Amino acid sequence: MPISDLVEVLGLSVAWLSKVENGTRRTDAGNIARLLGFYRADQATVDRVMSLHADPRDWFVGCGHGPGGVDELAVLLRHEAAAREVFAYETVSVPALAQTPVYGRAVLERNPLAVLGEVEQRTEARKRRQRVLSRPSRFVFVVREMTLRNLGVDRRTASDQLRHLALLPNTGRVEVRVLPRLMAGSYLDRYSFTLMRSEHYRPVVHVDAMYHSVFLDHPDDVAAYQAAAQAVLSNTLSVEESQALILHLANGAHAVASRTG
């Protein structure tokens, strides 16, 4: 039904409704009930939505992972596809969107509970997920120097991954920043997270925890993670310095692989 009908019947304004839908304006239980009634929501939906409104702490969504893992998580894919800005910081691996298939498979196989079929499914899901990099969006990937020096894979795989990472900025849409060893270790850079901003959703933070993901969109939570992102970025090398370091490490790994291969 056209939005004009809704605002006419309920006596609302288009601007008010737009702000509520975008999460930039709160409203009361009465207006929420009126909207649910207008859309003829079923009782289960009414109960769930009203309970969310009643509990102001419930500004997050928790999702379990299926066989495809986080790479097939619909809510994550939806936010990544809509995002105009993505900031991803990883503490122990290369960010998923920047992984080569071979390196990504090796990371997934580290899980002692990994099943071969699920590893292959998630590897393919990650490759599909990475198509988002072709969108006209801005991506900032931050990775620790300590991680780059010890990727936990064979030298040839490490060399290929490092070269891929170094070349990503050439697309013009991706920044790769390295957090040097001497700058790592503060409280704010201990935990991996992704911050996404889009035109259609409130800013959202994604935190992956092995078998579950948490999505936070409370303004206070987002502001805290935004501050963490700025703190991390303030200690990284520039894009050019990062690229030079990554290529240096890639050449070193390639040389060792050539001697021992």
Rank of each mutant, 00 (worst) to 15 (best):
P2T: 10
I3F: 15
L6V: 15
E8F: 08
L10S: 07
L17D: 11
L17P: 09
E21F: 10
G23Q: 09
G23E: 11
R25P: 04
R26C: 00
R26Q: 12
D28A: 04
F38N: 01
Y39I: 03
A41S: 04
Q43W: 10
A44K: 07
A44T: 13
D47G: 00
L52A: 01
L52F: 10
H53A: 05
H53Q: 08
P56K: 14
P56C: 06
R57F: 05
V61M: 12
C63M: 10
H65E: 10
G66H: 04
P67Q: 11
G68C: 00
G69S: 10
V70R: 02
D71I: 04
A74C: 03
L76T: 02
A81S: 03
A83V: 02
A83C: 02
E85M: 02
V86Q: 00
A88P: 00
A88R: 02
Y89G: 09
T91M: 01
S93C: 14
V94I: 15
V94A: 06
V94H: 00
P95A: 14
A96E: 13
A96P: 09
V107T: 14
V107H: 05
R110G: 09
L113S: 10
V115C: 10
L116Q: 15
G117W: 03
V119M: 06
Q121S: 09
R122E: 11
A125E: 01
A125M: 03
R126L: 03
R128G: 02
R128K: 10
R129F: 02
Q130C: 01
R131P: 00
V132R: 00
L133E: 07
R135M: 00
V142G: 05
M146I: 15
T147Y: 01
R149L: 07
R149D: 10
V153T: 12
D154V: 01
T157E: 08
D160E: 15
H164V: 11
R177G: 13
R181C: 14
G185L: 07
L188C: 14
T194P: 02
L195I: 04
S198F: 01
Y201T: 03
P203N: 11
P203T: 08
V205G: 01
V207C: 08
A209Q: 09
A209C: 09
M210A: 12
Y211C: 08
S213D: 06
F215S: 00
L216T: 07
D217K: 07
H218L: 02
P219H: 05
D221S: 14
A224E: 14
A227E: 12
Q230H: 12
A231S: 14
A231G: 15
N235A: 13
T236W: 01
T236Q: 04
T236A: 05
V239D: 13
E240G: 13
E240H: 11
E240Y: 09
S242P: 10
A244I: 07
A244D: 14
L245H: 06
L249F: 02
L249G: 05
L249H: 01
N251G: 15
N251Y: 06
A253V: 12
V256H: 11
T260H: 11
